[in-house]
Design a binder for these strands. Structure first.
Length: 482
RNA sequence: GGCCCGUUGGUGAAACGGUUAACACAGUGCCCUCUCAAGGCAUCAUUCACGGGUUCAAAUCCCGUACGGGUCACCA
């Protein structure tokens, strides 16, 4: 048996849905698990939806996610072209061949009339095409007369169609419930379903991995494979990714796409890790893994059948795990643009990155967290009063004055001397650490909550600025206390 | 409406006839602590949509019901 070949076949719409991306991931995993081939095929035949630059979005997303395809429009391969619009000429002959083989027939019915009939009969409409019963001569005559036609699938209503899905198991339907759908349109181009079957066959796709909305049309696909005498692929249908109990995740509803998440400061690796867990679970309890580890762990048998709801909270947590696990240098590099955006002053960005790494869940949280460095925000002296820290205005004033003095006396100004200095003060004044540190931190940041404490932030701000801000706070408190 | 699929806590989920129904996120409480995080500990489903059945034994098998989703285009 040859290796697995899977394909990801997105339409270039300009963004990547999370659900689509998960499908791509699973397709990649199914192939790679087996040392197989992962193929990218662009399905761009929906002219109405054509968007400039959309194909690049697909390439970029896949590259960012580490989903490297082995064959595709940009990398080539022996089963091209990999862009559907470049394949349009090749389907007609297959449709005609299918007619020869008895799997389809010419249909000359008027589209408008059919539409009206459909309208009239409503939901229960099932078309019994009179053209099926045309004789060979009648058909030839119409063809010769240049009558417009479509090619429609033949389905014997007395048969039963079944297949075994790797996820959903045995599926069986009566052919009487299946529509004889159009395979080749009157313009000579294929319908999506037909093109799919032909492309998958020609590209030797061994495992068709796709959303479960295709579950009910799969028997029809199989009938086509059978009529051609082609080998049917293994089917792996996936449960949908939902936004809530009732709705699928979709861009139409304004739900987050991959690009949106990245823009909010989520890491591609974390996104991939998270979505791998939507509809699949590992045999052990590990939840954090690289694509490579995932490839080893992945097992189609553990894909679930029921829909799963996309939970941004868990993704956020997981993204934080990725940030915390990062090499400090790497994190600095990644956070730098955000830091530079929020802080223009001449501060040590490595130190800033350090205090952020243990606290940020997304890159998007950075700017707000460090907005006090450039300029001390307006703040109320009420902040100095904190019950848990056992601080009052008076306590704050005392410790700030002492801190100022201590700072001015420092010859070496770094984390260690600051730490020692502030703690020494607490000892000397017989105050709790918090009674010194808390007021100082408020004074130098003007914020109730900050990444990092008094020592860390004093160190980053530098001696002069720290003292200046403390003096300001002293003045404020003295004014207040009279 | 016909057909197909699904249903374990707020969320992702494990369990594949016998467990006190894992684990993770979120929540709650405590600890640690110079704030916030991070980290540590604890807590959070007498119950697996509901009703029958099979079995010594059912979340797990069978049948119904309810609810939800999908699909029935010369769209992809």
């Amino acid at each position: 048996m040859s290796e697995a070949r899977t394909r990801f076949a997105p339409s270039p719409t300009g963004y990547m849905h999370i659900g689509n991306l998960r499908t791509a991931l699973y397709e990649y995993l199914v192939a790679k698990k087996d040392n197989g081939t992962f193929i990218l095929r662009i399905e761009d035949t929906d002219q109405g939806r054509f968007v400039e630059g959309a194909v690049d979005v697909i390439y970029n997303t896949m590259r960012d996610c580490g989903l490297k395809h082995d064959e595709g429009p940009d990398v080539g391969g022996e089963y091209g072209p990999y862009v559907q619009s470049e394949r349009m000429g090749m389907y007609k002959q297959y449709a005609e061949q299918l007619v020869e083989l008895g799997g389809a027939h010419y249909c000359f019915c008027d589209e408008a009339r059919l539409e009206a009939e459909r309208e009239e009969k409503g939901d229960s409409f099932k078309y019994d095409d009179p053209c099926k019963y045309l004789t060979k001569e009648e058909i030839q005559a119409k063809l010769d007369a240049g009558e417009p036609y479509v090619i429609r699938q033949n389905i014997d209503p007395t048969e039963t169609a079944c297949f075994d899905d790797e996820v959903y198991g045995h599926i069986e339907v009566s052919c009487a419930d299946l529509d004889e759908q159009i395979l080749l349109k009157s313009d000579g181009f294929p319908t999506y379903n037909f093109a799919n079957v032909i492309d998958d066959h020609l590209m030797k796709i061994s495992h068709v991995v796709r959303g479960n909305e295709y579950l009910s049309s799969t028997p029809k696909y199989n009938l086509i494979y059978d009529a051609f005498g082609w080998q049917k692929p293994t089917y792996i249908h996936l449960p949908p990714v939902m936004k809530d109990e009732f709705h699928k995740l979709s861009k139409r509803n304004g739900d987050a796409s991959f690009q949106d998440l990245v823009a909010k400061g989520y890491l591609p690796a974390a996104i991939m890790n998270y979505i791998a867990l939507l509809g699949w679970s590992p045999a052990d309890n590990e939840e954090i893994f690289t694509l490579e580890e995932l490839t080893k762990k992945f097992d189609v048998a553990r894909i679930s059948k029921s829909p799963s709801i996309f939970d941004i909270e868990k993704l956020t947590w997981m993204n934080g795990v990725y940030i915390r696990n990062m090499e400090p240098e790497k994190w600095h590099e990644m956070a730098l643009p955000y830091i530079n955006n929020a802080v223009k002053g001449n501060f040590d960005t490595h130190l800033i990155a350090n205090i952020l790494q243990q606290r940020m869940n997304t890159l998007g949280e950075i700017e707000e967290a460090i907005d006090f460095f450039d300029e001390l925000p307006e703040y109320s002296t009420d902040l100095f009063v904190n019950k848990k820290m056992k601080t009052t205005d008076e306590v704050a004033l005392t410790s700030l004055k002492a801190s100022k003095e201590m700072l001015e006396g420092l010859t070496e100004y770094n984390f260690d001397t600051l730490h020692e200095g502030y703690l020494g003060l607490a000892g000397k004044l017989e105050m709790k650490n918090g009674q010194i540190m808390y007021p100082v931190r408020i004074a130098i940041t003007g914020k109730e909550r900050t990444p990092g404490g008094a020592v860390e932030i004093s160190n980053i701000l530098g001696k002069e600025e720290t003292i200046r801000r403390i003096e300001l706070a002293i003045k404020k408190l003295e004014e207040k206390l009279g």
